[in-house]
């Protein structure tokens, strides 16, 4: 029997009053893969995760998780999933150990197995030394790790991560990414939402880009990046420098035509290695003086600009709740 996809939705819709949080969303995430839902605040990512984890009922369409219908077979779905997210849903008035033990008991692992599994997870997530401290005293990164550990207590085959690193500092993000990669290596299927392109790029094998409740692009990170043109070089010219001379000098390293706006030249690149050296040499030969030069990776905003023609809107819609 072929394995059913981890997630499969058809025409999934949800609205809150007049706000369409999801419009006709079709998704498919294969078992054993990492699937990323990429989009800005208010795009509908959290709504999608809440429906897939049985917390919210859709208004239209169907969703199956691990082969079970999220509405009609919610209990079977819940037995197979773990949920962790940006809100780090852990009890501040319990210790880290007590939190995990409680979740283990609620998954019906039994008292002894719950205790053992809790110790194991505290160890895995570098929380063993703080296991008996109240979670109220934990740092943001520690809470997020504990939240992830809580989602893993019953070793669910399918893990939903709702913006796992939003609001974390760089070091905590890296730590969490490594933990997620470790899980994936051990065979866990992961569905994650994120507003960071680099996070989706690093973790996900396939990405669906979502905006205002619709899926506007889908593919591997490579396909998406090719679609939006990959890395680029940004050259800030000195005041009074000859912009046209700069553009023609940089055309030789560009993949496409460099564009000049207000003394800033944007150069799409085919190959990033050596690009800065080549660019500086050519500009020097052409006698163009520059103030700054930098490599830029495409951001979510670039993806959006390319796909939708508008920038990411930074308003928090109520739909995100």
């Amino acid at each position: 029997m072929p394995e059913s996809p981890a997630v499969e939705t058809h025409g999934l819709s949800k609205h809150y009053g007049d706000v369409h949080a999801l419009r006709d969303v079709d998704l498919r995430a294969e078992t054993g893969s990492v699937f990323g839902l990429l989009g800005p605040n208010g795009a509908g990512k959290t709504t999608a995760v809440r429906i897939l984890t049985t917390l919210l009922q859709p208004d239209g369409g169907t969703a199956r998780v691990a082969g079970f219908d999220v509405v009609k077979q919610a209990a079977q779905v819940r037995e197979r999933i773990g949920l962790a997210g940006q809100y780090a849903a852990v009890d501040e008035n319990l210790s880290g150990f007590e939190n995990l033990e409680m979740v283990g008991r609620l998954y019906h692992l039994g008292p002894r197995a719950s205790r053992e599994r809790s110790r194991e997870l505290l160890e895995d997530f570098q929380l063993a030394a703080d296991g008996d401290r109240l979670v109220g005293t934990y740092s943001g990164g520690m809470r997020r790790r504990l939240d992830l550990a809580a989602a893993l207590v019953a070793r669910p085959p399918l893990l939903f991560l709702d913006e796992p690193t939003t609001g974390l500092d760089l070091r905590s993000r890296l730590g969490l990414w490594e933990a997620i990669e470790q899980l994936v290596a051990e065979g866990t299927t992961v569905v994650l939402t994120t507003q960071y392109l680099d996070e989706a790029d690093r973790l996900a094998e396939r990405i669906a880009v979502i905006d205002q409740g619709r899926v506007i692009a889908e593919g591997t990170p490579r396909e998406l990046k090719e679609q939006i043109g990959g890395d680029r070089l940004e050259v800030q010219l000195c005041p009074g420098a000859d912009g046209e001379a700069a553009v023609s000098a940089l055309a030789g390293v560009a993949d496409g035509r460099p564009e000049l706006v207000d003394g800033l030249v944007r150069v799409p690149l085919r190959e990033r290695s050596g690009a800065i050296t080549a660019a500086v040499r050519r500009l020097d030969e052409a006698g163009v003086r520059i103030d700054d030069i930098a490599l830029r990776e495409p951001t979510l905003d670039d993806v959006f600009l390319q796909l939708t023609g508008h920038h990411v809107e930074q308003d928090d819609e109520p739909a995100e709740r």
Binding site: R50, T53, T54, L55, A75, R78, E79, I81, L83, G85, Y87, A88, A89, V90, D91, E92, V103, L106, Y107, H108, A150
Partner: peptide, 17 residues
């Protein structure tokens, strides 16, 4: 407020507990 209810509701536990 803290989102703990989401965690409980995503667990295969008794709905009334």
């Amino acid at each position: 407020k803290k989102g703990l209810m989401d965690r409980f509701r995503s667990l295969p536990m008794s709905r009334s507990a």
